[in-house]
């Protein structure tokens, strides 16, 4: 079971980079009509989203976040022992994009690099994994990058496109003396509830297939919604049963920003006071694995927060997979939001 308490970690920094381009949901009135747009905004809570332009990718945003974090926190690049890139929008089918970022950041040959394919649960999974590496191995500093740019596809419904925003984040996790408590879960029975069926080995793209149709994003919204409002409250209960305490012990509860209807239901069921539940999806939409660190950055920019933030976080989604992770972060280690349109001009394009 992926239940663990780590006593020897420290969050050395959190940074988030988003595209400079802002798109308003009301820009889609011509396609969807005013009534439909208003209903979408009321239900999802999304009013704006940030979207990449030109050649910009998830890895570009994560690179900018990581580079800025290392500069601001004066981190020697040779001290990074591992770089983990978590996304569903990698630069290439192979190699792992973490190697591209490894090169761009100028990391040492002693720094290992690998990718993780996860979505909205990714941040809590990554925090757990990095902490196990710090506790069990010779690692001292790990750069954990999580980001997403949902693939836009003419075969995907507009509402499924505009629910998602683009963002890249970097979190520095190192050895220290703060505590992280984790509880992670998975249920493969729901693997087809959120899926892009084509483009892999199961349904390869060939000269006779329709690329856009086969690689369109499928989401069974009702199944995913039911899963979330059932399993996440259950996971919080198990978390508090295992580790003691309750929601009052935390300054904020940072949920993955799925949509407002889900957040309202979770707040009601888990009894999270609204003032303890930061909302960022109104301006950034659902940014998948980036939404928790993005939410922390946004929170520190918008509110007078304590010097040390005691957070409980929860991510949930594709897989199906979910988890609850609590940790401390000093607000001085949370960088202001970064806005960027930069991309890797020298990237290999074949």
């Amino acid at each position: 079971m992926a239940n663990a308490v780590f006593n020897n970690i420290y969050i050395g920094g959190i940074a988030c980079a988003v595209p400079e381009k802002v798109e308003k949901i009301t820009d889609y009135i011509d396609e969807l009509g005013e009534d439909e747009i208003n209903k979408f905004i009321d239900t999802t809570g999304v009013r704006e989203r940030r979207v990449v332009t030109g050649n910009q990718t998830t890895s570009d945003m994560c690179f900018v976040a990581a580079e800025q974090l290392m500069k601001e926190k004066q981190i020697d690049k040779d001290s990074i022992d591992a770089i983990i890139f978590l996304t569903q929008s990698a630069d290439y089918i192979q190699p792992a994009t973490s190697h591209v970022i490894h090169k761009r950041l100028g990391l040492s040959k002693n720094c290992i690099a690998f990718d993780i394919n996860l979505g909205c649960s990714g941040y809590v999974y990554g925090m757990y994994l990095a902490s196990t590496m710090l506790q069990g191995g010779s690692f001292r500093k790990i750069l954990f990058l999580a980001g997403e740019m949902a693939v836009e596809n003419p075969e995907t419904s507009i509402k499924d496109v505009i629910l998602f925003g683009h963002a890249g984040t970097a979190t520095l996790i190192e050895r220290g003396n703060t505590e992280m408590k984790c509880l992670l879960k998975a249920n493969g029975e729901g693997y087809s509830s959120l899926i892009i069926p084509g483009g892999g080995m199961r349904k390869p793209i060939t000269s006779s297939t329709n690329f856009y149709k086969d690689t369109a994003y499928h989401m069974d919204g009702a199944e995913v919604f039911g899963f979330t409002i059932t399993e996440i409250p259950r996971a919080f209960k198990e978390f508090f049963d295992l580790y003691g305490g309750n929601i009052d012990n935390y300054d904020y509860c940072v949920f993955h920003q799925a949509n407002l209807l889900i957040l309202k239901q979770l707040a009601r069921k888990i009894k999270v006071p609204l003032e303890k539940m930061p909302i960022s999806l109104d301006r950034y939409a659902n940014t998948s694995s980036a939404s928790i660190p993005l939410g922390i950055v946004d929170l520190c920019e918008r509110e007078q927060v304590p010097e040390t933030l005691n957070l409980i976080t929860s991510g949930f989604g594709v897989g199906l997979s979910w988890g609850v992770v609590s940790f401390e972060v000093e607000s001085k280690n949370v960088l202001p939001m970064i806005y960027t349109s930069d991309y890797y001009k020298e990237a290999f394009r074949g």
């Binding site: 209903k39 239900t43 009702a222 919604f225 209807l261």
Partner: peptide, 9 residues
């Protein structure tokens, strides 16, 4: 689909 998730809620 929005009505479906609203009904679940």
């Amino acid at each position: 689909s929005v009505a479906a998730i609203s009904l679940i809620a």
